[in-house]
Design a protein around this nucleic acid. Structure first.
Lengths: 158, 158
DNA sequence: CGGATTTCTGCACAACCTGTCCAGTTCTGG
DNA sequence: CCAGAACTGGACAGGTTGTGCAGAAATCCG
């Protein structure tokens, strides 16, 4: 991650439509250099993808909720030695409205981000999340406004 | 969002490198159709961008923390009528390690996602977040593992 | 300091893709 | 059943990509 890497990322983040050739012109380096940098950034894992970013809101899911789950500690699989968290993770991954889930510090807690079509619909989603014996409790918080939209660019610039 | 839209999104999400022409071949429709669909999905806000996705971890920020802030309710600006939340939002937006921030239900609460170079470094980030008189309190939770990585594709498929 | 290695440059080529038309056909809602 | 909207298939010029290569430049390390 030298300065050129940062400028490459910056340029493609600002204007994803520019091609490699145009980028090389703007950055004042050879085309092959830009290609090599992009390849390296991809293979080193800094750039994880180029997929289209989708807006849950525009897809009809304007309500975002943050759930904190309490997981039964003794619910691991004694045979596979798989932790309860992973089992719950699979349960959650099967629910489309679950956008992400993490285990967090605290006895048996997980943090889950869900979206729903309405506040009423959120109840349905929560019920689906709760539909696993390993999930003991769920506290819900509703997101009202997005003060800082998700971003990673400032990190790369720093 | 009909079935073709879903297939277009799906294809580009799975293989962002395919061009419009190749996509039209795989989907069995004319090139102009794919272009028209993409244009519509972009202008309707379903597709919000094509930028490279960056991994905070690969950028040297392997620690993720979730902060819940308590905001002083009486800290709004009497002249501009700007709420305290927005002012805090600007404060947070200036911190590169703040990846996103939302206001949430609860008296004066905000939810903030931050990253840091280490657990020790997290303290520095938190201190920066707290460096605003409108932020009264901050409770911290550290993310241990990512059970479900952030995703929106299942929503589009549904 | 000096050699070895890596990186960058500038260029070339063929193959391919994009943006943009168009006329004709097919769908779809009212 | 009609009219507007959407899709098809085709065409065109111009630009871009992937790839390879030799030489110059920068960097590393003993």
């Amino acid at each position: 991650m030298d300065d050129l890497d940062r400028r490459v990322i910056d340029l493609f983040a600002e204007e994803p439509r520019v091609g490699v050739l145009e980028a090389s012109r703007r950055l004042g380096v050879a085309r092959g250099t830009v290609q090599a940098r992009l390849d390296k950034l991809s293979s080193s894992g800094v750039i994880t993808g180029w997929g289209p970013d989708l807006s849950p809101e525009a897809l009809g899911y304007p309500v975002t909720g943050f759930l904190t789950l309490e997981i039964r500690q003794d619910a691991g699989d004694a045979i596979t030695h798989e932790g309860a968290h992973d089992a719950v993770g699979r349960h959650l991954a099967a629910i489309a409205e679950v956008l992400e889930a993490h285990t967090i510090t605290g006895s048996g807690d997980m943090w889950v981000r869900v979206v729903a079509r309405s506040n009423a619909d959120l109840q349905r989603v929560i019920d689906r999340v709760l539909d696993d014996e390993r999930v003991e409790r769920c506290s819900t918080v509703i997101a009202l406004a997005e003060q800082v939209p998700f971003r990673t660019l400032p990190l790369a610039r720093a």
